[in-house]
Design a protein around this nucleic acid. Sequence first.
RNA 1: UGGGGUAUGGCCAAGCGGUAAGGCACCAGUUUUUGGUACUGGCAUUCGGGGGUUCGAAUCCCUCUACCCCAUCCA
Length: 749
Amino acid sequence: MSERKDFLRTIVEADLKSGKVKEVVTRFPPEPNGFPHIGHAKSIAINFGIARDYNGHCNLRMDDTNPTKEDTKYVQALKDAVEWLGFEWEGNVRYTSDYFSQIHDYAVQLIKMGKAYVDSLPEDEIREYRGTVKEAGKRSKYAERTIEENLDLFERMKKGEFKDGEHILRAKIDMSAANMKLRDPLLYRIRHVEHFRAGNEWAVYPMYDFAHCLSDYIEGVSHSICTLEFENNRDIYNWVLETLELTPPRPYQYEFARLGINYTVMSKRKLLELVDGGQVNGWDDPRLPTIAGYKRRGYTPESILAFCASVGIAKANSMVDVSQLEFCIRDDLNPKVPRVMCVLDPLKVTIVNYEGSEEIDSSYYPHDIPKEGSRKLPFSKNICIERDDFMENPPKDYFRLTPEQSVRLKGAYIITCKEVIKDASGNVVEIKVEYSKESKSGADTSGIKVKSAIHWVDENSAKEVEVRLYDRLYSVEAPEGIEDLNPDSLKVIKTALIEPAVIDEKPDVRFQFERQGYFYGDPVDYTDEKPVFNKIVGLKGSWDKKSKKTETRPKERVKKEQVDGEVVAMSQEQEALFAKYTEELQLNSEVSNTLARDAQLSAFYEEALSLLNSPVSLANIVTNEVARELKQVAVEALKFSVKDITELVKLIDDKTISNKIAKQVFEEMVKSGTNPKQIVKDKGLVQISDPAIIGTIIDEVIAKNPDNVEKFKAGNSKLLGFFVGQVLKATGGKANPQVVNQLVTQKLK
RNA sequence: UGGGGUAUGGCCAAGCGGUAAGGCACCAGUUUUUGGUACUGGCAUUCGGGGGUUCGAAUCCCUCUACCCCAUCCA
């Protein structure tokens, strides 16, 4: 709905505006044979989002045409995913299987029309007969069966009289179609298996290409949106609907690029392998890009939706960086969730000069988050801090506790290291510190400056919790198989220490563990006795990165060498034409080349030349403008004639119109076929070359854009185009651009 | 006898003949009791390469290159 729409919304809006579509109806049509992943989320966001934006509706339809693969347990996962993302489907959940009898009737109709036949070739022969990508296929002899035979056979197929694979129903289209999907595509196959919804009612099941378009039609879908790999299927989609002569309105298919994210896999097959192979713990393993996985990990629907919106919708295959997803969840959680303290790897700290205990009141939110809420932080002389928040021999830019450097215990006091206690093997096991009584948070009169504040917990009151640290599932950007798995994708810490309020008060389910990241109480394994937290995502952190950065070598920019392929040689006739154009007519070689190689174009050109002796202008317009139109339609279908073109060129040659106007006139000729002179007259397109008139306009433009004038004078010569454009715009394109150009340059000197 | 798509900074992505939006990432600075957040500034003389048309081209024409999809009785 924003100013900048994606291409699908652009199409939808145009259809609405033109009246082609009265109500926008979309559908999300997954096959219930696996758990939905974030790629499905993108599709859900698109289909439901478009329906919502244009006051239409979106159906949830299970595309259950293959009884051997689908299962009801996936249906639930799909419904859950849509609901979790916050969308509502229109009416009940639809199933392609609901339409089996209608689809069957359409098949019968096709047979009656002579557009479908029962083939009885064995599977491997069907494949063989299909031909290859470079060779035409050949039609099965069974394609000659009479309509009656086909009807009879299909009826018996349906009744279950034949075994699987014995016969098949196919459309009769074209076995030599360049688009292989059109080589008599299969419509129905025999399957003696129980369908999870239709039971044993059917012995034949429709194929995707037949069922999908008809289901869309039956549901009144206006825009059938799918992914790029179905581009080739669009021809059958249209063929079925057109051949059946269905009463309008009918749906149209549009394709967008599927979502790819680095360091993970998105194919159902690979996901299934991970689950079945035990590499992960089920479909909802938080490392998986499944919606169930993200949900369990702690991602919010808002963040997933924001991500889908941020990656856009286009037709270029792409691989989105995970950091974009991570940004979305941090961005969503930052203003929402309470900050608490949890020490993952505890180091014992004794505050030697502190006696007794106290409770410190501390807000759940930092100063910049306008939310209310606080808890009591127990404090005593025995506390724990994060092991890597202390270093005996720190690098210069280390801000935390060292023997020489004090730190603040967040929300509490400033401490100074006094003694480091080590075990026999030299590991630090405890540090003894002194605190400054005057440094209490909020009432600090100590005057001590510290570089950072670290998190901590009181040893006695802290609760032991399990924390599951998740990292990317794969260690390579574009993983192939399990050999690419990241061995450290899951680290379980069983002895993390968390402040008591998190467990006792449970202010939320999602938290920011200060200085570490966002965490989520695991919805499955969490119990009050054994709390479990999943790491959703880490904080951004520039410290870790800096230290890691030394490892990543700066990648050198390798400029890819462009190899120029061989250009096909010209035939003799083409060579002759080329020679004539370059030598006799003095055309430049590129134009001559284009003309000479295209028989249609050169014929058009020659004819024009016989009417008007202006070889160069004619060649230019034929090569550059007429050529475009000829790409779309045949010469006979052109609305303008050769003569029209010569007249157009005449207008240019005698300077009645500029090249710019000529383009405008040409466009009109393409659309209406009106004679160019008439167009120029009707629209008053005669060009303005009078420097006086143009000069005043330039002055106006200059007066209106002092900033740009300054920039231009400062050396930004690119702005010349801006000024020329403005003047041209002011004159409706009629100003002579060459004159404008000259004048602008002069005036801005 | 091949056909259908796609190429804009490290990653996404606008742009549709008037002179390269935005986000992520990255870098620098300010604020900060999170090495977080927020804020400020920087980050494409150039749009896969080469030609051509035009006063002017990422946008139009020609050509080359690279990548993706199609030969399941899968969807």
